[in-house]
């Protein structure tokens, strides 16, 4: 496998894991309210919609005979939009400007909301939760599936789902020990790297703007990873200085 293929498969697996953990937390909370049978039914319905989307999109991409440079540019721009959003969020969490995602708190809040809801509404929460987290996975499979093969990309997301389900069912508690922000940050750096490589390469010619080829992906990843941590560190220091001046 090439650098791009390894990067794509790893990014899909890790990013999917983050989304599946969030979905699992919702389903767990709903299961404790309306029972495992109905909660898993709702989750399965949500997953079925996501699976259908993945299959339909895959068939559509196979059928499309568009110019490869245009496809790369479009996917690259989409990845930049998606990646920059995750990158900024992760930096803000590292710098303390946004609270770290807390699965235990989310779980408690969901349970509290569900206590006031009827069984049907709880089913909808599980369905929508899995569907929405699954939609992000679908977007990543569509975008990054281009690096390896569409089937391998979907397989990577499915393997990630299986890993989260096994871990979640073994523990039967929210998966609080997953270093979610670190995973999101690394995935954001990978997505930004692919987005930069394909977005600009598709628009201006890959060989002209990226003369080093696939190796550039590693350099871009390192640059985004280091720069993001510096931004977070400076942001945290600025926040501390402002707080100190006020005290």
């Amino acid at each position: 496998m090439s650098v791009a293929q390894w990067g794509g498969a790893s990014a899909i697996f890790l990013a999917s894991a983050v989304e599946w953990v969030e979905a699992f937390t919702i389903v767990l909370a709903v299961a404790l309210t309306i029972g495992w049978r109905r909660a898993t039914g709702a989750a399965a319905a949500g997953l079925a919609v996501v699976a259908l989307l993945i299959v339909l999109t895959g068939a559509g991409l196979e059928a499309a005979q568009a110019d490869i440079a245009r496809i790369r540019a479009a996917i690259g721009i989409f990845l930049l939009l998606f990646g920059l959003r995750w990158y900024v969020k992760a930096i803000r969490r590292y710098s303390g400007r946004t609270a770290l995602h807390d699965e235990a708190r989310e779980f408690a809040e969901t349970c509290e909301q569900l206590e006031r809801a009827e069984g049907r509404a709880a089913w909808v929460v599980a369905f929508k939760g899995v569907l929405l987290e699954g939609l992000e996975v679908w977007l990543l499979v569509v975008a990054l599936g281009h690096t390896l093969s569409y089937a391998a990309a979907a397989g990577s997301a499915a393997a990630s789902l299986a890993a989260v389900i096994v871990a979640g069912l073994a523990l039967r508690t929210p998966l609080t020990r997953v270093p979610e922000n670190t995973l999101k940050y690394l995935v954001a750096c990978a997505i930004l790297s692919f987005g930069s490589f394909w977005g600009l390469g598709g628009l201006a010619g890959e060989q002209a703007v990226w003369p080093l080829g696939d190796v550039t992906l590693l350099l871009l990843f390192a640059a985004y990873a280091v720069a993001g941590r510096i931004i977070a560190w400076r942001s945290r220091a600025a926040g501390s200085a402002a707080a100190g001046a006020q005290a």
């Binding site: 919702i26 989310e106 809040e109 969901t110 509404a121 929460v125 929508k128 929405l132 987290e133």
Partner: peptide, 9 residues
């Protein structure tokens, strides 16, 4: 998560 739980309707 917030999206999923914030909309029972």
């Amino acid at each position: 998560m917030a999206l999923a739980c914030g909309r029972l309707g």
